[in-house]
Amino acid sequence: KYSDMIVAAIQAEKNRAGSSRQSIQKYIKSHYKVGENADSQIKLSIKRLVTTGVLKQTKGVGASGSFRLA
Rank of each mutant, 00 (worst) to 15 (best):
A70I: 08
A70L: 07
A17T: 09
A9V: 02
I10C: 05
S19T: 07
I42Y: 02
I42L: 04
I24Y: 00
L44F: 07
S30E: 12
S23N: 07
I28Q: 01
K59N: 08
I24K: 01
T58H: 07
K47E: 13
N15F: 05
G62C: 08
G53W: 03
E36P: 14
L44G: 06
K47Q: 13
G60M: 06
K47R: 11
Q11W: 08
S30K: 09
H31Q: 04
V7P: 01
R48Y: 14
K29G: 03
H31F: 06
G35S: 08
H31M: 06
S20M: 03
Q11P: 00
S30H: 08
I28S: 02
V34C: 06
K33W: 06
S23H: 06
T51C: 14
Q57A: 10
V61R: 14
L49N: 00
V34A: 04
K33E: 12
S40D: 12
L49A: 02
A9G: 00
G35E: 06
A8P: 00
G35F: 04
R21N: 07
Q41R: 12
D39Q: 06
G65K: 14
I28G: 01
T52M: 14
K29C: 06
V61T: 10
D4H: 12
S66R: 15
R68M: 14
I28L: 03
L69S: 03
A38N: 03
V50H: 00
A8M: 07
V7T: 04
L55I: 09
A63K: 12
K33N: 12
S19I: 11
I46M: 04
K56W: 12
G53Y: 02
Y2M: 10
S40E: 14
G65V: 15
G53E: 02
L44D: 13
G35N: 06
L44K: 14
I6R: 00
T51W: 10
A63V: 11
S40I: 13
A70W: 06
A12T: 04
I10F: 00
L55T: 05
R21L: 15
L49C: 04
K59F: 08
L69G: 02
G60T: 08
Q11V: 11
S20N: 06
S40Y: 14
I6V: 09
S45H: 14
A63L: 11
K1S: 14
R21E: 15
S23C: 09
Q25Y: 11
S19E: 02
G62Y: 06
S20W: 04
A17Y: 14
Y2P: 02
T51V: 13
V54H: 04
G65N: 12
K33M: 11
L49T: 00
S30V: 08
S19F: 03
A12D: 05
I46S: 00
L44C: 15
S64R: 11
T58Q: 06
Q11T: 10
N37K: 08
D4Y: 13
S64V: 08
G35T: 05
N37C: 08
Y27G: 00
A70P: 04
T51L: 14
S20K: 04
T51A: 14
L44A: 12
V50A: 02
Q11K: 13
V50D: 02
G18N: 03
F67Q: 02
K43Q: 12
K59C: 14
R16L: 10
R21M: 15
R48I: 12
E36D: 10
L49H: 00
R48D: 07
K43H: 10
I28H: 00
G60K: 07
R48W: 15
G35V: 04
A70F: 07
G60P: 06
S64K: 13
V61H: 12
K59G: 13
S3M: 12
T52E: 12
K47C: 14
H31P: 00
V61K: 13
S30M: 10
Y32R: 02
D4W: 14
Q57C: 12
T52C: 15
K14A: 14
D39H: 06
R21A: 14
A9W: 02
R68E: 08
T52P: 00
D39G: 05
K29H: 08
T58V: 13
K14S: 11
S20F: 03
K47Y: 11
K47G: 06
S3Y: 13
Y27E: 01
R48T: 08
K43P: 03
S23R: 06
A70M: 08
I28M: 03
